[in-house]
Each structure stands twice: as C-alpha cells, then as structure tokens.
Design a binder for these strands. Sequence first.
DNA 1: CGGATCGTTGAGTTGTATCAAGACGGGTGG
DNA 2: CCACCCGTCTTGATACAACTCAACGATCCG
Lengths: 253, 253
Amino acid sequence: MVEAQANRGGHRRLICKLQSIANLAEDEMRDVQLLPLSLKSVPADTQIVRDGERPRECCLIVEGFVCRFKMLSDGRRQIMSFHIPGDIPDLQSLHLKILDHSIAAVGVPAILAFIQHQDLHDITRQHAGIAAALWRDTLIDAAIFREWMVGLGRRAAIRRFAHLVCEMALRMKAVGLADHQTYDFPVTQSDLGDALGLSTVHVNRVLQEIRKKRLLEFKGSTITIRDWKGLEELGQFDPIYLHQNSAAGMLDG
Amino acid sequence: MVEAQANRGGHRRLICKLQSIANLAEDEMRDVQLLPLSLKSVPADTQIVRDGERPRECCLIVEGFVCRFKMLSDGRRQIMSFHIPGDIPDLQSLHLKILDHSIAAVGVPAILAFIQHQDLHDITRQHAGIAAALWRDTLIDAAIFREWMVGLGRRAAIRRFAHLVCEMALRMKAVGLADHQTYDFPVTQSDLGDALGLSTVHVNRVLQEIRKKRLLEFKGSTITIRDWKGLEELGQFDPIYLHQNSAAGMLDG
DNA sequence: CGGATCGTTGAGTTGTATCAAGACGGGTGG
DNA sequence: CCACCCGTCTTGATACAACTCAACGATCCG
C-alpha cells in the first residue's frame, strides 16, 4: 500500500533525524517506530497550522519543505526557520498551548505525518532518552534562531545568504538529503527575502553578486555549491551552533 | 548568615519564576527548595560563561541583569536576550554540551546561584512536572528569540526599541520586579544597539525621538512608561509570545 | 495563446552606519 | 576638594546599504 510505505517513510525520517542529534537505545527506537502517524499531504505554499491555534498534535515532515513565519500588521512577513524531512517544526506546541506563529509548506507540496500530543507525552514518560532527544531538538531549534539573529542584526545581506546556504547544506546532509555539493532548496527570491529580512529586489541583486563570485549556482530549485570554503568564509559560518552528532567531514572534499 | 539569606533568595526567585510559567505540585516545590545552590557574585559587565565552554552547571540569576550574546570576528556583538532574576539563561546547556554563545552580567553586579547539571537531571527524573516546566522555559526562550527575529528583520529601529521596553516590562512584572509603570533597566545605549542590531549613535537618536513622543522616560537606569497603549502600538507588541500564565491586567491601568 | 508568477533592471529615496568631535558626569587620586 | 579622566551621551556631516516604485522579460501552465 502507498500509505503503509509513506508511513514507514515517516518513521524512517524521524529515526534518522533523532539519530543525528542523540543516541537512542534499541527499545526506544522500537517504540518510536510504533508511534501512530496520521498522514496528510498539502499543496505547495499552503498553511499547515496558523498563528493563534491550539493544536493537539505535532507535525513531522516526511517529504517537502516547510517554514515557520509571522505576519506583521502591514502584510510583511518574517520567516523564522526552514524545515526539512525529519523535522517536527511545531514540537514546541507540546508545552506551549497557543501557537505564536504559522507554519506552511514552501515551494513544493509536502507530506506530513501528524503525531498526537498524547502519544508524544506517553512515549516521553516511558523513555527518558526520547524525552531528552526531543527536548534537545527544540534546543537546537533555538540555537538556530540565535544564529539567525546574529545574521539579521549584524551581517550584511550577502553574508546572511551565504550563511543560510551553508546551514541548509549541513542540515540536509545530516538526514541524507544532500550529496557532495548539491541540494534542493525550492524557495522563491521573495521567500528568501522574508527569511533574510530583505526585499525581493535586493535578494535578486545579492544572488547575482554571489554568482559573480562563483561561490554557488542556484538554478531552478537546486543549489550547487562551487566553493564551500569561500561560502563559509563569506557567511562567517561555524557549524557548532547546529550541535550535530558528527559535524565533521562535510562538503569540502 | 548572609549566604543563607541569599540562598533562600535564590530558591524564592526560582519558585516565583516557575510559578509564572507552570503549575507545580506541593512536593515538587518542596524539592525545588532543596536544590543545592552555589552562590557567586560577579562585577558588572563581566562574562559568566564563554562561547565554546562545556559547563557542568546552570546559572540561576538571583540579583542583577544578564545578557546572552555572540561576538563576530570583527569585534561587533549581537545580544540575543536579556535575563532577569529567576531566569536560568544557560538552561539549554543541560542538553547541548557545547555553549554556542557567551553570557555576561550587564550594567550592575549580579548574584548568581549555580546548580549542578547532575542535580537538575535528578530532579527532572523524579518530577515530570519540573521537567515539563523547565522544558517549557526553554521553549519560551525560543519564542522570545522568534519575536526578536521579527523585529531585527522587519521592524524599524524605533519600533524595535518600543517592543523591547514592553517585553521587559511584562517579564519584570511577572516576577514582581516592576511596579505600575517603572522598572530598572541598567543598560548603556551601546548595549541597546547590540541587542537591537543598531549603532550606538542611532540608538541615541531613537531614544530622543521616543522621548519627544512622550511614550516613556529613561533616566539613569530606570524606565518609566508614560503611555503604555502608545508603546504597544508603536512596537506592534502582542504579549502572546511570552506565554505567561496570566498575561492580563498589565501596566495600562 | 493568455494570464499568472517569478525574475531582472533602472532610478530615486531613505534608514541607518560611520567618522569625528565635543559635552557631561561620576569616580579616583593627588 | 579640586582636577582629571574615562566612559557614556550627544550632535553634525557624510556615506552607503538596502528599500520602494515601476516597468519589462522569462517561464510555466491551463
């Protein structure tokens, strides 16, 4: 069955993600695999949950690309994070009843696996290791926010973009979604602007500049890194803040 | 003994903080009060823990004012949060071994109470409620980061500042450190610039502008709010993101 | 083929940074 | 007790990064 396959996909993605941030015991992994998942697919650029809601479930990304964002009263938007398969972007709703931002699929349709809060509470009560791993995941989330704050507050536009490209490369790599120097990043220049705190026009000019420096290509929705060292330097990128289990041996081969 | 008093102060502050974000049971509060605290005072504007360290304890603020920040290679700084008595600014170190930023006292000397990671691990293992409360605390931390990101990315300088003033007012109020419309905020204009992503010169001009609007006074290290409604509107401030137990009935009396 | 979305370009504007210098103010030492 | 000094605040002049507005080109899709 298609559904059974996708379900396995959901558990596989979750396991893979958890292993990239923690070391789970055998029985813990087994129970993660038994978590009831409720699958749903959403079209590209569609909201999944909305600012102000009180969700009773968390959403695990199985396929696709997701962002969290807040709208301002004048219609402008700030994207606070991008999420990839294996992430649970609203894990915080487990302990914060009201959602203080929205979540949406970006660029391409997404397949999501919803997990009841109740089931997550149960599994964390039974397995201290899983509780710790999930807590840790939300802490890494926060660490990424902090790093973005540095960019938004203190880094020039082109550095911000370079930094984002490096970050996504490592995160995609950690869950097996990036090969040597290429990965999929299906966002528009307008999305990028909302994430980097820039106007679309300026994003466009930044992209041209970075292409001219031959640091990367960005055709269609594919990013191809041509000069990892250069990108890292331009973005002042130091992967420590990602707190990955193995932050070594990356794309610079 | 002075130390015994301050120790009680530490536990009192912690209890007060935890009650502002969660509902603890009797026995949980009792065990919180039994947590071993190791007191230390640090001079104003001194680092407490440093980027890259691997702390074995967390630091509870008993008195004073603390910020978390990252330094850039060119010596500029981004402050990512301010912390007040009752906060544990490095609670995340419980699950993220390496610190990805530094922590320092700002403006005035601080009294800190260090809690061994081991003791925190023990108490969370014994009391699911305390584990949840601490996890929740780190999640609120992250929610505040997100809100700051919106400011840094999308709000004009004066709005950013107004927003910060509102946020600090509510947080101080929640732990009994702000009265009707006044509270202590011992930061220099340079600190403010590092928090808001602005130059000192521009902070100065923003302050003048906001004074001219008669929204607040900022003499010495004391902020006096003159027009809460106006500040809230200017800062586009909506307290939802603070996830306080009782976000109602604030300074606008 | 037409419309919608996205990307690109140019011109003009503005918010904020930088540089430089002076004023203020609180603490220290002579 | 005064003089001095250092950090902070303030002000002015100038520079520039990024924004806005507006128009046009490129794709894609129905």
